[in-house]
Design a binder for these strands. Sequence first.
DNA 1: TTCAAAATATGAACAATGTTCATATTTTAT
DNA 2: ATAAAATATGAACATTGTTCATATTTTGAA
Lengths: 206, 206
Amino acid sequence: MFIFYNDVYVMNRKEIQEQRMKDYFIQATKEILKGEGIQALSVRSIAEKAGYSFATLYNYFKDVKELIFLCVKDFQQECQEYVEDKTKDLQRGEKKIIATAISYAEYFVQYPSVFEIFFIEKLPNSTENAKISELISSFLEKLCQEEFQYCIDKKSFTDEEIREIVKELNCLITGILLLYLNRNYPSDYGDFAKNLKSQIEKTMKK
Amino acid sequence: MFIFYNDVYVMNRKEIQEQRMKDYFIQATKEILKGEGIQALSVRSIAEKAGYSFATLYNYFKDVKELIFLCVKDFQQECQEYVEDKTKDLQRGEKKIIATAISYAEYFVQYPSVFEIFFIEKLPNSTENAKISELISSFLEKLCQEEFQYCIDKKSFTDEEIREIVKELNCLITGILLLYLNRNYPSDYGDFAKNLKSQIEKTMKK
DNA sequence: TTCAAAATATGAACAATGTTCATATTTTAT
DNA sequence: ATAAAATATGAACATTGTTCATATTTTGAA
């Protein structure tokens, strides 16, 4: 169909350029989400920040949802770095798990629009999106995995206990965040933080 | 300013008529939310179902959000009836609290758009909306209040324990629902129901 | 270097959204 | 019956995501 000097080379060049273009749009999307927030996010605002027309966006993404959810991995990376920095000096095991869970929640309080993308924004049904959902739902577990394994090895928890705890922590923190960010419950940040900590600690105590 | 035959009578008539009009729109909104769902909800679809022009809606509500959140009380009433019917024959106390919490969650699984209105749809900041947030955030507590009091009287729980449990149940169930409804986690309804039950039971065991 | 073809970027246009407003219609009270 | 007040309404607007024909740029061979 196409004639190339060197198939592989040309393909790579094309892909590199295409990825670069995608990255401009992804970067713009992330900046808007972290800055002005999701209510300022639109096809046109993204394209403007990226330095292209809104129509150009559609040459690289099938729709704006695809673009938005391509940010998930980057935000997870950033969140992971935030959490690791906050917990790096703590003693291993239970203490570190608690601190990890708290930092994880703090990240979303800092970037409510990232919480929206992760948990609220609707994902159209597709096998690709099922993977993204999975990535999001199991993210806290991933953050804690190493410490959980440490606890299992140390026999302070059984494998089964850990499985239950991580599920509960995940649901609990998601709910605490949703109520705080969307329903102003509790209305005071201090109360929120206190409640977050005490509920996480209680979950770990079984 | 205005001249009336009988001040009180005329005011009442006007108010009755106005409330009737509001109810037509509220009823239409509830029907769409429970039927086609929130993605089918628009100013125009509401007005069509109510039998009026979309512009008429703005003579009775300052915006569509006001109308949407006026449905909250009705949905809470309906949810309460659903829960009471599901739990009416159960023995009082802990068992009934657990069943109440499960039924509460089931109601939202049955009507995901009601969950959206309750927990996801953004409320513009106002003192009126703060009350609605409060109503939503404390709804599960209200549903369980009688049984909690029964437990306290029976001395199976202290006042302080109950306060902590209700807060935890509320956050936990909100999170379980959000992950299931929005992130398909877990993907199987049976797993969801099992997880819901086991986490509620664990929360009650302290 | 030149030029045709392929690739890419873009604005016009569309449908759907919430909202406002001037005006048409209906209701009210005398 | 009629003037005035109340109410209902469609036209219009701004904003949204998306599509598409076309303008522009890039590419590769002569």
